[in-house]
């Protein structure tokens, strides 16, 4: 055996919507096992479109996507969707079953799990996000932050190799935001996070890729990219008012976890 295939490999990806709009124009992205990568970009940069290619919801107009060496093509979709778990931006889109427990069971049941094994998956996933007590509640009775955590659990229950999060911090209050970071930092998993929330990317992902007009415009250490004011301005990215720039200067992991 030669060296293992990357967790994710996107090469020369082009995608055009049926109405003729070009969303991706030659995107490249390689993510290795265990990496945590933020895909940064302004609204309309093609972030969500890219995300929907990672598990084969969209089929590329041109280019290829592979997950752990397995090409994303129709014949492999079942295995691809086990390997890549997507947490969507609006938890109300993701949680549709009458109870939290049933919703978390939906994915693993689609993978063919039944009985005790299924139960154990649900219990583990709910405990990973600290929602075990809410197993029998209806999703629409939970707070927004709780719903986002349950949405994460519905994907964790499938034990994916790669976790993809779409704007995980959107609409969260500061406490829910911090709770979600704490959960995500405990997960030992390859993580791709699509966002325009730069401090959140800094907190969670050592590496970032800037996506603009359907192409990867920059790729490197998150701290270095965020310190490059000209680069951010070129791609309509901005650090929020009051952001402590010292966070970008300190070394190592501490800096990334201090916020």
């Amino acid at each position: 055996m030669t060296e293992p295939a990357p967790a994710l490999e996107v090469a020369g990806l082009h995608f055009t919507y049926p109405d003729g709009r070009h969303a991706l124009e030659g995107t490249d992205l390689v993510v290795f096992d265990g990496e945590k990568v933020a895909v940064l970009g302004p609204n309309g940069a093609g972030k969500t479109t890219l995300m929907l290619h990672l598990n084969g919801i969209h089929t590329p107009t041109r280019g290829t996507v592979a997950v752990g060496g397995l090409p994303v093509v129709k014949a492999n979709l079942r295995e691809i969707r086990r390997r890549v778990g997507i947490v969507f931006q609006d938890p109300d889109d993701q949680l549709f079953m009458p109870t939290v427990g049933q919703d978390v069971a939906f994915g693993p049941a689609n993978l063919g799990l039944r009985g005790d094994e299924l139960d154990a998956r649900v219990a583990d996933a709910l405990s990973a996000v600290g929602m075990s007590r809410h197993r029998d509640r209806a999703p629409h009775h939970l707070s927004f932050g709780e719903r986002r955590r349950v949405a994460l659990a519905t994907v964790l229950a499938m034990q994916p190799d790669v976790l993809v999060l779409d704007e995980p911090s959107a609409n969260l209050d500061p406490a829910s935001r911090r709770e979600l970071v704490e959960i995500l930092l405990t997960l030992e998993i390859t993580l791709v996070m699509v966002t325009h929330d730069l401090p959140y990317a800094l907190q969670l992902c050592p590496r970032s890729v800037v996506l603009d007009s359907g192409m990867a415009a920059a790729d490197g250490e998150t701290r270095t990219l965020l310190a490059d004011a000209a680069l951010l301005a070129r791609h309509r990215l901005e650090l929020p008012y009051g952001f402590d720039r010292r966070l970008l200067e300190v070394d190592g992991v501490d800096a990334a976890r201090r916020v």
């Binding site: 929907l52 598990n55 919801i57 079942r78 969707r81 086990r82 778990g85 997507i86 969507f88 609006d90 109300d92 889109d93 993701q94 549709f96 079953m97 009458p98 049933q102 069971a105 939906f106 994915g107 049941a109 689609n110 993978l111 519905t154 994907v155 499938m158």
Partner: peptide, 22 residues
């Protein structure tokens, strides 16, 4: 549109047209 997004999210979790029994 929400119905469409719900369907996408279901597909992402391996839905192939058979709903689980509740």
């Amino acid at each position: 549109e929400r119905g469409e997004r719900v369907f996408l999210a279901m597909e992402s979790r391996g839905y192939t047209g058979t709903l689980p029994s509740v």
